[in-house]
Nucleic acid binder design. Sequence first.
DNA 1: AGTTTATATGACTTGACGGGAATATGAATC
DNA 2: GATTCATATTCCCGTCAAGTCATATAAACT
Lengths: 110, 110
Amino acid sequence: MESSFAIIAEPNRRSILSLLASSECSVGELERQLRMPQTSVSKHLRVLRDAGFVEARVEAQRRVYRLRPEPLMEVDAWLTPFRRFWTAHVDALERHLDQMDLPPKKGKKR
Amino acid sequence: MESSFAIIAEPNRRSILSLLASSECSVGELERQLRMPQTSVSKHLRVLRDAGFVEARVEAQRRVYRLRPEPLMEVDAWLTPFRRFWTAHVDALERHLDQMDLPPKKGKKR
DNA sequence: AGTTTATATGACTTGACGGGAATATGAATC
DNA sequence: GATTCATATTCCCGTCAAGTCATATAAACT
C-alpha cells in the first residue's frame, strides 16, 4: 500500500477522488453518489487518508473530506519523462491539420 | 481487463517503463539493469504488452521492447480534473509547456 | 545434430487486498 | 441516559497477483 500508484489502482478510490475533485463531501454523500456500502467507503477513505490523498475535518457527527494535491502531483511528476512520446504524436497531428485548416495563431516555436 | 492504473501499480513494471522511456531494450538488458530474474521480467513484459504499454519486435533471438504512449496518455488524461488543485497553489508552474529537450541516448537526465 | 543463448510459459505457493456482516465509537436529540 | 444518526473498525473469506522453479521454444553457433 506504499506507493501512490497502488492507491489509485483501485477503481472505487479513483471514483472517490473524482467526486472530491468537484467538491468536498461527507462520507454519507459519497456513499449515496457511489452507491457502495458505507463500510467500504470508510475503508477506502482510511486508505486515502493514510496515503495523504485526502484529509477530513470534523463537522458535528460528520466528517467532511477534501482533496490534498501532493500524492497526485507525484504521479503527475512520474509521467513527465513519458510525455515526449505523445507530444511528438500531437505535433505530427498538428502538422497534418495545418494543411487542411487555417494556420493557427498560437505559438509554434521551432 | 486490467486498468492502466493497476498495471503501473507494480514498482517493477514502472521501472521497466522508465527504462524504456530512455530507449528501447531487449529482455536481457532489462534483466541486467533491473537485477531481477529473467522469468520475472518476461512476465511483467507480458502484462505490459497485453495492456498496450509496450510492443516488441523480434530481432534474431532477441525481443526488443519499446514504449507505446496510449495507456499512459489515459492516465495523464485522468489527472486533468485534478491539476487545478496544484496549478492554483503553485503559480505558473511550467510543467505543461514544452519540456521537450533533446532526448539523450545515454547518461543521466535530470 | 547437439549445445548455448534468449525468451516465454506453466505449476505451485504465498501473501495482500477488497467485500461483507457485525460491531464499536461518538455526537446529537429526545 | 437511552436512542438514533454518522462514521470507523474488526474479523472472516474469496480472489487474484507476484515470485520462484522448472520446463518449453526457438534461433544461433560449433
